[in-house]
Amino acid sequence: MNRHLLSINDLSANEALMLLDTASELRKISDGPMKKLPTLRGLTVVNLFYEDSTRTRISFESAAKRLSADVINFSAKGSSVSKGESLKDTAQTLQAMGADAVVIRHSASGAAQRLADSGWIAASVINAGDGTHEHPTQALLDAFTIREHFPDHQRSFSGLNVAIVGDILHSRVARSNVLLLTKLGASVTLVAPPTLLPVGVESWPVTYSFNLDEVVSEVDVVMMLRVQQERMHDSFFPTAREYSRSFGLSGSRLARIKSGGIVMHPGPMNRGLEISAESADAVNSVVLEQVANGVLIRMSVLYSLLGGVPLVTEMGAVDAR
C-alpha cells in the first residue's frame, strides 16, 4: 500500500477491502480482554488541524491511542499558524520533532497532497479532509458501515444503489464516497439542486437527479450531507425551508426507502434542515454506528500505513498475535 492516504484514488479496490477487513479484525481484538494494542508503541502521530473538527480529531486521537501511539494535537488556532507560519515551516517543525504520521485537516483543497509531495516531511500523511476535495477515511468508514448492513455484499457492492443527497459541490465526503463506492461496484446517484452540483459532474462515474422523491424509493442507502446555512447567502438556494422541502429527508420520504435500506449522515446533523429528527432517530439510521466505525477505520489506516504486521491478507484473516 501507498505510504500516504491522500485520496481514495491512492487505493485499489482490494486495498480498500483490506482496510475494511483489518478494521473488522481490530474490532474483534478491541472487544477482547486487551482493549489496547501495543502495535504503534513509540511512534508519534500528529493531528495537524487547521480547521475545527472536534469529531474527526478525537476519532483519530482515540484510534492512535488504542494502538499505543503517542499523540500530539496541533491546532492551528492559537498557534504560530495564526501568526502566519507557512504550511512548510509547520511541516518541517513536525519533522524535526520526529512525527511518524501526520493527520491533516485543512481548509485548502490539496493541502494534504502538498504536504506529502513537497519533501518537507518524511512522515506518512493521512488526509482528514482537505477543503472541498476529499475525506478518504470518512468514505472508508461509510463503506465499512454499509458492508455490515448488507451481508451479501462483503467483497463487492455491485447491485447496491446509493444516493448521496445535498451539497455535492462543496462536499469532500461526497467526492471520496463517489470514488470508493463506485470502485467497490455500487451504483451511485447524486441528488441536489443544480446549484450544488459541480460543473463537470458529467465526468463522474455516477448518475444525478434534481428530484429526491424520484430517487428515494430506488435506493438501499441514502446518505445525507450537511448543508451549511451560509450557502443561502450565496444564492445556492433561496431559503432553508425551501431546501428542506425539496431535499430534506422527511419521515414520509424515509418511509419509501427499500426495505433493509439505511440512512447515513457524516455529522454533525442539522436536524430539521437536511434531515428531520424523525429520520435521524429512525431504527434504520446508522449515524451512531458510523461514529463508532470511524475509530476502527482510522485504527486500520494508521495500522496499515505505519507498518503493522498484516492482520488480514486478500485470502482472509491471519493471526496477528
Binding site: G110, T132, P198, V199, S203, W204
Partner: peptide, 17 residues
C-alpha cells in the same frame, strides 16, 4: 482557483468559468 470543468470538479477547487 482554476478552470471550471471536469478537473476542477474532481479536485474540489473553485471553478473559473
Amino acid at each position: 482557483q482554476m478552470n471550471e470543468g471536469a478537473v476542477s470538479s474532481q479536485l474540489g477547487l473553485t471553478g473559473w468559468p
